[in-house]
Computed example of a mutant assay.
Amino acid sequence: MSLIAGEFLLHISVWDLVTEIDDQLVPKDQLAQLLADAKISVDFVDLCNRYIDETPIGAGDVLLFRSGLYESEMIALDLFRDPEDQQDMVYLAYSCDPLRQKLVAESLLSFFESCKMQVSFSMGNHLVFARQMISLEVNPRPRGEHGYKQKIIDSSLGLE
């Protein structure tokens, strides 16, 4: 029996999105290939650098990247920087086209297994936290003890 899932949620370090080759940061192969196949464009090296250099502790938004090929496919990254977090942890949510569920599940699991900070990997057909991350009904939403108003930034509308 194989599991059918269209939604995935990973809790990992932002640094697990990239790897270092010859003193250069590059995107991890498993994730980069999955996104390339779906025509989703994310510059993970820039994202990691901006996360560290430009996102204050107690702040951070959700970045949403949509597929240029599959209408229902997208990746979202919750980049809120919790003051107690010392590992630069982020949430990665992925929603996929029904015809790609097996491929996406295998690719994301392979990616997760390559991560150094493996906090959690969830898959299902209705992941509440993943849906709340990208819901316009609950965002902007307060995050952290100082009530930072986290917003969704949709790359199809342009990133700040």
Rank of each mutant, 00 (worst) to 15 (best):
Q24Y: 08
K102I: 12
R50N: 15
V14R: 02
S155K: 06
A5V: 00
G60V: 01
R143W: 13
C115A: 14
E145H: 09
A5R: 04
Q30W: 13
P83W: 04
F111P: 04
K28D: 07
L79V: 11
H126N: 14
D82G: 01
D85Q: 08
V90H: 05
D61W: 01
S155Q: 09
S135V: 00
M89A: 14
S72H: 07
V119R: 10
Y70S: 07
I4F: 15
M89T: 15
Q132F: 01
Q86D: 11
L77Q: 03
I40L: 05
N139E: 06
H11C: 15
R81N: 01
D154F: 00
V138F: 09
P140H: 09
R81V: 00
L31N: 12
I21F: 11
R50M: 10
C115L: 11
N139T: 06
L10P: 09
K102H: 15
E137W: 01
Q118P: 04
L103G: 12
D154W: 00
Q101S: 12
G58R: 01
G60E: 04
S13R: 05
Y148I: 08
S120I: 13
E145G: 13
V42G: 14
N139H: 11
V90F: 10
R131H: 10
Y148E: 01
L64A: 04
G58C: 02
V45S: 11
L17V: 07
V128R: 14
H11S: 14
E113I: 11
A93T: 05
M117L: 13
G68D: 07
F44L: 12
S67I: 01
C96E: 07
H146S: 14
Q118V: 02
G144I: 10
Q87A: 09
D82C: 04
L17N: 06
I57C: 06
L35R: 02
S114E: 11
L92Q: 04
L77W: 00
E73L: 02
F129C: 07
K102Q: 15
L31W: 13
G68P: 06
R100M: 15
S110C: 07
S95D: 06
L9V: 08
V45R: 05
